[in-house]
Design a protein around this nucleic acid. Structure first.
Lengths: 153, 153
DNA sequence: CTCATATCCGACGGTTTTGGTCGGAATTGC
DNA sequence: GCAATTCCGACCAAAACCGTCGGATATGAG
């Protein structure tokens, strides 16, 4: 009944990047310091986020990471899935609709329950975006809310 | 983003007890065999369930465990909480409304997200009872549905 | 060119949790 | 007394988790 700290740290990292959105790449050193998290560990986490195309990296001096899309367009479900894999409270309750894994006689309705729980979690997560985690007051770039949600591919 | 097998096994154990409700105590040996689970391990789990007053035990020969209340009155939230502790997707999101644990400057809205997720899980869990997991066809005792939800005392 | 700053990447290690076993004591019906 | 059970604590192996370390690579600035 819990997410790993991988999830927590990753979300905090993303929240920082959302806050700095529009200011160019932010180094992990900065983020780690401000958030009070171990930099070396964030390095690991951010790889998953990059592989999921949620952030993009710029190498070399003055490099760092930045969001690939506006915070308003990034739902938290994406973030958590990138960090922790598919949302399945139980192995038995993966995203496959014809699960059939539970071969117990036929009185095994427990699977049904896990699916309901999974949908509840996914629903909650997908109803929030990164922007919801960043109060407008602490945004770095004032122009940022002006950016309409036109994701020019 | 997952429950432990403690949760899964415990729920299946409870489902079995629900199925046999009204037949007197059921031994763990029986349940374990029918469900294909290690008996010695179930012994551990059932202790939590007993401490939470969800099942009661009868020691000695022909003893075993049985539900203390009718399956319809036992919500799954209770079961999971008994097995896995409080439902908190993150340490930060415990049941205390004035959490204040997150002392990060003030731009830390992430906590808010975990609370939403927790509520979603709890909501889903508390909207189902043990009886929902047991199709009427496989009930052991036909009288069982006749028992109205009058929890005497 | 050199240097400082970054990402990138694989390996490693320690602690904790998980999933489960074992042996035996206590209890009770027959 | 005997067999069936709960009860309980100790123990254990494997995996996951959290995090470190060292170094390779890339790049902008002076």
């Amino acid at each position: 009944m819990s997410f790993s700290t991988k999830g927590e740290y990753g979300v905090r990292l993303m929240a920082q990047l959302a806050r700095r959105f529009g200011d160019g790449p932010a180094s992990l050193t900065d983020v780690a310091e401000e958030e009070g998290l171990p930099r070396a560990y964030l390095e690991q986490l951010v790889i998953s986020l990059r592989d999921a195309d949620l952030v993009q990296s710029t190498r070399g001096a003055h490099g760092g990471y930045e969001l690939t899309r506006a915070p308003e367009t990034i739902v938290m479900g994406e973030v958590l899935r990138a960090l922790e894999g598919p949302i399945a409270p139980m192995i038995c309750a993966s995203d496959d609709p014809n699960h059939m894994a539970c071969s117990r006689s036929g009185h095994c309705m427990v699977n049904f329950m896990w699916v309901r729980v999974r949908d509840a979690i996914a629903g909650a997560l997908d109803s929030m975006t990164l922007a919801d985690l960043v109060p407008p007051a602490v945004r770095m770039h004032p122009d940022f809310p002006a950016t309409p949600v036109t994701i020019a591919d």
